[in-house]
């Protein structure tokens, strides 16, 4: 007598091949995708050193001093060199710079888009405040913005 036992049917899913294909797809998309970097940057042209002098600019630049009055992003003080009045914050600075720029909308402006803008933070100014002022000038679409040598707080801002 031949006794044949019925084989138990196994309905198992073959995971190996599935993992195989899933990984292949993952790698394909990772290689094919261009990842967006979560960082942005402001371009700044560095003038070449000339006889040890720091910055030699052709035009009389618009000088903007900035100092930190606290640790918050808005805790900064701005002062323009010259007869330009008081500037309260970076928004007011952008507005002033926009209004002072000569273009098709403001023919009575004072500065060309290429006019040198010199941001001079104090020695102890926070980097974020220096860049906030730099950004204000960039927002007003000035193209010749430079970070200059720091000034001591007492010399410029009272």
């Amino acid at each position: 007598m031949i006794i044949k036992r019925r084989k138990k049917s196994s309905m198992g899913l073959n995971l190996t091949s599935m993992i195989d294909v899933v990984f292949l797809l993952l790698i394909y998309f990772m290689v094919a995708t261009e990842f967006k970097i979560a960082e942005e940057s402001f371009p700044m042209d560095l003038p070449a050193p000339k006889n040890g002098q720091s910055h030699m600019l052709d035009n009389e630049p618009l000088v903007i001093h900035v100092d930190s009055s606290g640790e918050g992003p808005h805790d900064l003080r701005i002062q323009l060199e010259g007869p330009w009045g008081k500037i309260e914050n970076t928004r007011a600075l952008t507005k002033f710079l926009r209004m002072s720029k000569i273009d098709e909308f403001h023919v009575t402006g004072y500065f060309l888009q290429t006019h040198p803008v010199l941001v001079t933070p104090t020695e102890n100014a926070r980097w974020e405040h220096a860049l906030a002022v730099y950004n204000a000038a960039a927002l007003a679409q000035y193209t010749n913005i430079t970070l200059a040598e720091p000034v001591t707080k007492l010399d410029v801002l009272q």
Partner: peptide, 9 residues
């Protein structure tokens, strides 16, 4: 900075 006028690196 707020409303940064920077470009993506």
């Amino acid at each position: 900075p707020e409303n940064a006028a920077a470009s993506v690196a």
